[in-house]
Design a binder for these strands. Structure first.
Lengths: 197, 197
DNA sequence: ACGCCGCGTTGCACTCAGTGCAAAATTTGC
DNA sequence: GCAAATTTTGCACTGAGTGCAACGCGGCGT
C-alpha cells in the first residue's frame, strides 16, 4: 500500500511532466493560440477530460512545478543562525528559488525558447502560492527581529522587495542572452538593496 | 465633432463607471461566484454583449481605472530636476500611483469593503500595463544615471523594488484598519530602502 | 476461476467567458 | 425630418472548466 502508493505518485508526476513537455512543444510548434486543451490532449494521447485531472487550468500545463513551498522556504529561513542578519538569510532563500527555475539539462533549451518567445509565462507563474509565502516569511522575519509586522514595515519591505528582484533576476537571465546567471543577478541586486538605493 | 466627440467620451466613461459600481455592489451583495456577466448586465440594464463593449474581460469591471499611464509616469519622473537623486524622484512617482487608488469620497466605503473581502482583486490590478511601465521607467532611470540597463542592475532594481513596496503599501493600507495612509507607508518603506536593508 | 473493490480514465451534458458579424436602435449633423 | 455615424443588441460559435456516472483494469480474497 505504501509502496504501491508511492509508485502511483511517481507515475502520476511522470505523466504530468510528460503532458507539460507535450504542451511546451506544441506551443513552440504551433504558437500559443493553437494550444487548446483539445490539441494538448490529442498530442499527449489522453482525453480532454483527463487533462483536467492533472491540471486545474490550461495555463498550469506550461509552468514548472516549484520544488519548494511556503513551508519549506520559511523553514530554510528559520534554520539560519539566529544572529545572522536578516537580509543575509534572505539571500539563501533567494538562491533556493532561483535554482528551482533551472530545468533539467535536456529540457533547458526547450524552456528557454518558450520563455524567450512568451515572457508572460515566466511572470504568470509566481502569483500562485505567493500570498501564503509572503505571509509566512514576513512572520518569520518579524519573529527574528522581534517586531510586530503590523506596526513595523521592515519585515514586509524586506520580503516584498526581495521577491521582486528575485523575479526580475530570473526573468532577465532567462530571456536575455547574458553570461550572468540568475544567481549572479540576485547577488548584484541584493548588494544594492543591502547598501541602500 | 470635437465637442460632441468629447461628450461621447465622457458619456462612455460615465457609463463604464456606472457598470463598475453595479458590479461591485453585486459582488458585495451576492458574492464573487454570483458575479456572472449575465448578472452584471441585468443589474446594469444592458445586454451581455454590450458589457464586452466596455470591458474586455469580466474582471476588468472590478478594477479602478488608473489615472496614469506608462507615458505620464515616465514624464513625471523625467520632469524632476536632473540633479535630484534617482530614488528621491521615485518617491514622487510612487505617491502619484498611491493617490490613484483613492476612490471618490462617496465610493470609498464601497471599495474598501470590496478589497477587504476580496484582497486578490487589489493584487490582480497591477499586472496589466505593468510591463510597459517598468520598461519605460527603467530606461528613464538609466538615462538619468547614464548607464546601460542591460549591464547595470541599478535601474531595474530601483524600479522593481519601488513598485513592489508601492503595491504592498496600497494593499496594506486598504485591507487593514490602520491610521497610516498608503502615502505614509510608502514613505516608511522608501526610507528603509534608501538607507539599506 | 470467480467476483468484488479501488482507482484512473473517459464520455456527456452543462455553465459561463469571450468574439465576430450583421441587423436594429439611437444619436448626431445638417 | 433625413441621412450618416455610432452604439446596442441578438445570434451563433469556440473554448475553458466542472460534476456525474459509467467503464476498464489490476489486485485481492475465497
Amino acid at each position: 500500500m505504501s509502496a504501491s502508493d508511492q509508485r502511483r505518485e511517481r507515475q502520476k508526476a511522470a505523466k504530468r511532466h510528460a503532458i507539460t513537455l507535450t504542451a511546451v512543444r506544441l506551443v513552440l510548434d504551433k504558437g500559443l493560440d493553437a494550444m487548446t486543451v483539445e490539441a494538448i490532449s490529442e498530442a499527449a494521447d489522453i482525453s480532454p477530460r483527463t487533462f483536467f485531472n492533472y491540471f486545474s487550468s490550461k495555463d498550469e500545463a506550461l509552468q514548472m512545478r516549484p520544488s519548494w513551498s511556503a513551508v519549506s522556504l520559511t523553514a530554510l529561513f528559520q534554520d539560519r543562525p539566529a544572529d545572522e542578519p536578516v537580509f543575509r538569510s534572505m539571500r539563501v532563500v533567494a538562491q533556493e528559488i532561483a535554482d528551482s527555475f533551472v530545468p533539467a539539462r535536456e529540457e533547458s533549451e526547450l524552456w528557454r525558447e518558450l520563455w524567450r518567445r512568451h515572457p508572460e509565462l515566466l511572470a504568470k507563474r509566481s502569483s500562485e502560492g505567493e500570498e501564503e509565502i509572503f505571509r509566512s516569511l514576513i512572520l518569520a522575519v518579524a519573529e527574528r527581529t522581534g517586531t510586530d509586522p503590523m506596526k513595523d514595515s521592515y519585515p514586509s519591505v524586506v520580503v516584498t522587495s526581495a521577491f521582486s528582484v528575485i523575479q526580475w533576476a530570473v526573468r532577465f537571465s532567462w530571456i536575455n542572452e547574458d553570461d550572468r546567471t540568475s544567481a549572479n543577478l540576485i547577488d548584484e541586486a541584493f548588494d544594492l538593496l543591502e547598501r541602500g538605493l
